[in-house]
Design a protein around this nucleic acid. Structure first.
Lengths: 333, 333
DNA sequence: GTGAAAGCGCTAACAG
DNA sequence: CTGTTAGCGCTTTCAC
């Protein structure tokens, strides 16, 4: 592998000059610049990232810490992050944490060891606490999906309370009154959505039914199990709201298993407009999150912060959209 | 940040000894080993990855190069890779190539610059050609999903010909005779599946209809457009096989738009058992690929190769499973 | 068994 | 404007 010294010799300059040319520093004669670039070309020189990293304590890698790449929400986010990164000459390191605070910590440590340039992180509530008195915040970081007002970090989120309020109100508007809600337990997101849900009930003068409000892990099987219990109870809900698509698919399976008809027997609405939301019948009414935009914005903010660590923190709240389809449209309710 | 020198001083040994202890080299007195470990603990020392990388020309990062993380097939693969990597102390660098040979090359170059320990790669046909006379194969590499018999690399695949044969035969067995096939154009995978499709027709003495055999990009919209054309033609197919789930969802949308009933008017079968395959009605008959296992196997093979570069190459062919649901079950055909 | 010392390839003072 | 030089933190001969 050809190194900077080879280039320097071939171009008849010092390594320092080569380095200057390559990092577009000023104070280099145009002619020298040109000659060096030519040699770089002809020798096919590519700087050694490890050496750059060691010397400058920073790599061209940004990390994406999410709970699970198999969650459709994060797929789109990660795709966006990748796109921005690639464009700007960064690579993306992926870490799944399964909403496990222990893994989150291991991961963060590792990223520091790797000198990553920055981190895009979707933390558990637990991790948000830990972050406060850790040195992890020394890494450029933007938190996504989860709300962290108390922390001094860049933040890209949606308005979860409002979105949950909207979708619950939609159900209420169609006459559904016995609405159950299933929310993820690991994240602030689940909490916020629950709050929006509660507020909507309150504003419509519907007393909440405790047994209908569920916190659970946010996987498909949790949605299924929770829904089965709900549907087998004496007092059934006639509508269910879920706080993500994994839960929704579990609930849908449970509804099918219970031989109930959507939306006549029961309505279903969820967060996240996945591929399948429009494919099932009746198609699912959902809150669409601007997933790609979340990732895109986060990545751009991160890179800006990397370039200017002193930059003031900001919180970006992106808009969601209620997509009305047929899963909540029964006339009789 | 505490470095190896700090540890050496605190333990009253040389940096060389600390290094030996940390990499579990022999020839260190047990007592010294213990003392060093204690100091490492108490000081919270963590080796600098960049320095290790520079010195030893290899990082603890493995790369995953896939065409698109938004393709469900790769999600599961990447999850598996991540799991194995994490377990073995590696991190995963993610690269999307969009089946674009140019991007593949950029990516490969970058990975070499980063001194990644190894690469798991799902290449385009183009890239497979390029690989032959490139030096990229100097990196430990395992190729997944795509077939590369000519190359001297580790390879994890399924039997695409056979799987396509199986699912096509299933359709044929249910009396469908006018079967269209939509295959991805960028990969060897699409080719092989087309071949299995053709063979099944032949073995059942069904003359293939040229207009029913389509190569296209493998995204949802391509599936939609292709299917729309197929369905609007004078001579319609009464069954469609697609070579991945993205195409399948496009086709499904087209069928819905055309107001046709599955499986009575038209049958649909596809590769890839996604979340939604069991959620739509009628549920989709599919070839299930062992996606997680593909990723898992590939990651393990890669790590073995990293540890022993002289290891002989091997090809692992994993089994697929035909999951029969209701999308191909019409009696009248 | 252990230490001293030589770099890996690069960047950033500091000189000139 | 450009070269010299001193490391970044680690691993790995080579001595002892």
């Amino acid at each position: 592998m050809v190194n900077i010294k080879d280039v320097a010799e071939a171009a008849g300059v010092s390594t320092a000059t080569v380095s200057r040319v390559l990092s577009n520093k000023p104070r280099v004669r145009a002619e020298v610049h040109k000659r060096v670039m030519e040699v770089v070309q002809s020798l096919g020189y590519r700087p050694n990232r490890a050496a750059q990293n060691l010397r400058s304590n920073s790599s061209k890698i940004i990390a994406l810490i999410i709970s699970d790449i198999e969650n459709p929400f994060f797929q789109s986010v990660s795709r966006a992050v990748e796109d921005v990164a690639q464009e700007q000459g960064y690579s993306v390191l992926l870490c799944n944490t399964d909403e496990n605070p222990e893994k989150e910590k291991i991961c963060l440590n590792l990223l520091r060891d790797e000198n990553v340039a920055g981190v895009i992180f979707s933390p558990t509530r637990q991790a948000i606490e830990n972050l406060t008195d850790s040195s992890f915040l020394e890494m450029p970081m933007v938190i996504i999906d989860r709300h962290v007002s108390k922390l001094d970090v860049d933040n890209v989120v949606i308005d979860n309370v409002k979105s949950a309020y909207t979708i619950t109100s939609h159900l209420l508007g169609h006459g559904y009154k016995r609405i159950a809600g299933i929310f993820g337990i690991g994240s602030t997101t689940g909490h916020d959505r629950r709050e929006g849900f509660m507020r909507a009930l309150k504003d419509h003068n519907i007393p909440p039914i405790n047994d209908f409000i569920k916190y659970t892990n946010a996987r498909e099987e949790d949605g299924f199990n929770t829904a089965m219990k709900l549907l087998q109870a004496k007092e059934r809900p006639n509508a269910i709201v879920t706080s993500n698509s994994l839960l929704a698919s579990g609930v849908l399976l449970a509804i099918r298993e219970s031989q109930m008809a959507i939306p006549d027997d029961i309505a279903l609405a969820s967060f996240d407009d996945t591929t399948w939301a429009k494919l099932v019948e009746p198609a699912l009414t959902v809150i669409e999150q601007p997933t790609y935009e979340i990732g895109h914005t986060a990545a751009e903010m991160l890179i800006k912060r990397i370039q200017d660590p002193a930059r003031s923190n900001r919180e970006v709240v992106l808009n969601t959209k209620l997509i009305i389809r047929q899963s909540c449209g029964c006339k009789k309710h």
